[in-house]
Every structure is written in C-alpha cells, then in structure tokens.
Write a protein that binds this DNA or RNA. Structure first.
Lengths: 303, 303
DNA sequence: TGCATGCTATGCAAAGTTGCATGGCACGCG
DNA sequence: CGCGTGCCATGCAACTTTGCATAGCATGCA
C-alpha cells in the first residue's frame, strides 16, 4: 500500500467509492450499492484519505459524517462522475449493431404481462446479440445516473438530458374476478370490498382516485400491486387499475358501477437518455416498447 | 476478469491508461509514462475494449493506431481527466498547513546553484512537514497536466489556468574561467573559443545570441548546460550565460569584449497553477522562490 | 438494565492483478 | 540481405486486493 500523502488521485476508481459513501451515508450501504464488501469500502476510503492527506469521513458506529473537506470535494467528484458517464454515452454512440445489454426500468406488472410475453420474444429473435436487463421495482431508477437505459413508467419523467414520449392513456376501471362479479354487481361504491396499494404512505394515482370516490382506509392494503391483484383474482375484493389489464388477465373483468364516475386515466411514458436514443441497441428496444405499448391504448386501438 | 460487454466503464482507472496510450502512441510508452509494465497496459486496454464492446487500438508490431471509436472517445476521456485534476486541486485547497509534497520543475543549474543551497535549507527548517520534488531536465513539464506544481523557467509560460510572474532579468555575459581569463583577453569575438549548448538542434536564447554575434558552429557543442560550464571552468572555452552565474561559481568571471555588444538578457519566471497559488504548501514554496530569485537580478540588487 | 441491531475495523485465506521473462514480428540500418 | 532494435502478446511466480468471518462498539427498545 503506502501511497504517499501528496494530494494526488492515484486511483481514479476511488472517486466512485467516495460518491457511493456520500450518497448512501454509510460504508455498508456504499458496499451494497457497489456490489462489493463493506471491508473493501472501508479500506479504499482510508487509502483515499491518506492519498489526499485529509480525513473525509468521521466514523461513528451508527453513522458516517462527512468532514468539511469531503463537502468541498463533492462537486468536483460529481463532475468526475458526469464526465465518466458522458464517456460511456460516447462509447455507446460508436456502436453500429444492436448488441450488448439494455437495462429497462419498469413495473412488475408491465414486465410480466406486456414486455416479457409480447415484446421480448420478437426482440430476441430479431437481434441475437442483444441482451436485456429487466429492472422491476417501485424505486425509481435514475436514468441520468445510468442506473437504467430505458424507463417505462406511469409518470412524466423529469426532463434534463432525457427524451421520451407518452405511449398510451389507460383508462382506469374497477376490476373484479369474473367468478365473483355477480356477487357485488349493483352495490354502491361505499359497499364494495375495496383493496388498495399502499407503499410508505405515499400518494399514488390510485390512492387519489379512491379518495375521490370517498373510499377511506381499505380493509385490505397491499404493499405491492401484484399481491393486490392476486387478492382480487382470489375474489377477496375489487381494485382500481387500468382496464387494459383485463386483456392480460382474462379472469378479471371491469365492474360497472351504478354511479359510473369517471375514474380517470393513467399515462404511460417511455423514456431514455437523449444520448442513447440513436444508439442501435437502445433504439430497437425503445421502438419496440413504444409500438407494443401503444396497442394498450384503447382510443388508439379503436382507430 | 470476464467483464461483460455492456458499454459500462466499470474501471474508471482504465481511462488513465487509454489516455496514456493515445498520448504516447504505444503501449510501451504508456507503460513508461504510467510507471508500470507494458504487459499491464496491454491487458488493461484489452479489458477496456471488451468492456466498451469496441476496439480502441489496432496493434502493429511497430506502432499502435487508434480506431475511429477511440477517436470518438478522446474528448470525453480528456474531460474525465480534467475533472480528476480539478478534484485534486480542490483537495489541495482544503489543506491548512504547509505539508505534503511540492514538485518544482526547473533547470539543473537553478537547482544546483540557487534552489538547493539557498532556498531549501530555510524552507525545510521552517516547515518540517513539507517535502520537495526537484524535477530538473530540459523537457518542459506540463503544469496544467499536473506533472509539476511550480515551474521556474526562462520563458513566459503559456497562459490558461496558470499564474506567475517574472522574478528577474538576468543580463547575459561571456563567461570564462578566471585562471584562463588573461589568455583570451582582448581577442575579438571571432577569435574566442566559443562553446555552445545544442539540444535536438532547437533554437535557444543563447544560440540566437551567438548567431547575432556572428559565431557559427562552435568547436565544442554540449547537449547539457552543465557540461558546457564544466568545459568553461576547465579552461576549454567561453560561454554565453547569465552574468549572475559568477555569484554561484566564483571560479568564473565575465569577459569584457572589446566590441562590447549588448548580449541581451534572460527573463526568469516562476509559475504555478492558479488553483494552487493559495494552497499553503505551494504558497510557501512559491514565495520563497520569488524572493530568492529576485536577488539574482542585478538591477534590483543595486537598488 | 439488558438485549438486539446495525455499524466499522481487522485477521486470514482465496482470488485477482502485476511484473518479469520469453517469443514472435516488422521495420530500418549497415 | 541479414542483423539489431523496438514493439506487442502471453506464461508464470510474486504480490496485492478482495471477501468472509469475527470482534468491538454505540444506539434504540423493552
């Protein structure tokens, strides 16, 4: 070891570790984010501190606090990261064939019911050297930070270096298991066995909708949409969800409410980084997503 | 090994290798510049090419040619380097005490006769934690690229992020060994046994001066000023050099030419990067250099 | 107060990386 | 035209770095 203290970054790699610790707030967290071990983070940060000749973090058993020196370096470190990410994009731009890996960030439902069965088969067949990472989950991955290449989500993306489009407007409906349909037909809104999706008590389009209908806290609340739908298919209750879901799940049907309120629509967006839009491997994925997801939009389908 | 081809820079360190190969034009040269082995460069470039999914260099036995892909990445890579260098400067700015290492680029003569005997003793005594790298040589080290922190040279530095000042104007004189002085006293310019400093056939202030005096190719030409001065001290000839050298080398004296032409002056500059000027460890060195070198200027000394 | 939890630091064996030595190859010089 | 030189690729041993397991510590909760 024994790098001398001379204010020289002899290991550019360490900048990545520094940023991870700052963002995660702990060595352990940084290790998880970097897919490495906590001990490695600890040692590399120690080395970096020695190389720069100044302490960067105050280690506490419960927490890691940045020193003022670390604070002063943050901007510069982020500039390094931006430059590296820009270089990655520049590298992508040079490729000619759709090959390599594309990471798609999307919801579990879109992945299972649309992307996997309807899009991937054709994509893999058409481009043998293309590989796909499906990153499902509720956390919003940061396209700008290269956590994913393409994102399919139900909200308009933050702008910046991102480009994208709305591919479908999906009317919401009250979904119910077909075999339980007649049991609740004709009931009023207040009498229906509502289920809801609740994650960290955050507001969702669906929760806003329920509130608008006058439905309060539901008897069954799920922290994942999939579990919620499983409950509906088991006949436990009804859920507000895109009507288009009945295409993918034939044992579900829309329930016509007597009051017939407008349940609103979800807007589906496909987004990527501007620098990647023309990159072959991304372009084929992006285009396939847009084409297939447009078909979900009933207003478009009817035309 | 086995990083997958997915256009991701998993090893930021590799950017440094990429740039070194581009600049040196060969893996071996890059290895020398990076103080590592040629085999390491070869392997890391191969890894980088695989990680980016595209070839960067065409290997020939005699030469390495960049591919168009490498060309496209050059700007981005340099941006990464600039960001890293900026981060190093930011790290320096955070230090409070003059400690660490300062690299001074200067000529052999200035190092031996001025900096080492007159400046370093006081500097080391005043700042126990300060370390100095004296980088002598004729190649001009690049301050902007962090090859040195402070430079003492006989020409005005390229501007940019550099700051500095002229610390002395040193009149040139014809120097001769004292014990040989009377041998050549009174001789005309053309009759004197001139010596010269010739390096790669480049023009120097001294060579311009000789040409102006009408002196052509000299009998003794040296590729280092020190050797040339050794020859003069040995009584082999005379040399055009700053008159102030007689202060450091008492066995030399200035020879008064009968024609007494104006031999001109050399201008001595001390330069550093703007970002470092206020950094304690650099500031104490810079200030000591300026103060001591000013004393070499006769016009100032007489005041 | 005592226990459970999540954090960092460190010893140690395994894995990865480096440097050296070698081989092959093309160009330039005598 | 052969030889010398400088270049890149690769095998192998020494070294360095990594990941796992452990120990120590402070905080929060019962």
């Amino acid at each position: 070891m024994a790098r001398e203290a001379m204010q020289k970054l002899t290991q550019w790699e360490d900048v990545r570790y520094f940023l991870a610790v700052v963002r995660q707030g702990s060595f352990s967290g940084a290790a998880r984010a970097l897919a490495t071990d906590q001990s490695t983070v600890s040692r590399r940060i120690a080395l970096l501190e020695h190389a720069l000749g100044q302490p960067l973090f105050e280690r506490g058993p419960r927490t890691v606090r940045r020193t003022p020196q670390a604070e002063a370096l943050l901007d510069a470190a982020q500039a390094v990261e931006r430059a590296v990410l820009a270089m990655e994009d520049a590298a992508s731009r040079a490729e000619a064939e759709p090959r390599g890996r594309v990471r798609i960030a999307l919801t579990e439902g879109l992945a299972q019911h649309v992307v996997v069965p309807r899009i991937l088969p054709g994509l893999f067949a058409a481009h043998p050297e293309l590989a796909i990472d499906l990153r499902t989950g509720d956390e919003v991955l940061d396209l700008a930070r290269h956590e994913a290449d393409v994102s399919v989500r139900f909200f308009r993306p933050a702008r910046g270096e991102l480009v994208g489009q709305r591919v479908a407007r999906l009317p919401l409906a009250v979904l119910v298991a077909k075999r339980a349909r007649k049991r609740w037909a004709g009931r009023s809104i207040g009498e229906l066995p509502w289920t809801s999706y609740v994650k960290d008590d955050l507001e969702t389009p669906e929760s806003r909708m329920l509130a608008r209908l006058g439905v309060g806290r539901t008897r069954l609340a799920c922290s994942s949409v999939e579990t919620q739908l499983a409950a509906v298919r088991a006949g436990l209750g009804v859920a507000v969800a895109p009507r288009a879901l009945t295409l993918a799940l034939p044992d579900l049907a829309a329930l016509d409410l007597p009051e017939a309120p407008d349940l609103g629509t979800l807007e589906l967006f496909v987004v990527t980084r501007a620098a990647l839009r023309k990159v072959p491997r991304v372009a084929v994925v992006y285009d396939a997503l847009v084409e297939a997801l447009r078909a979900l939009d009933p207003s478009r389908a009817e035309v």
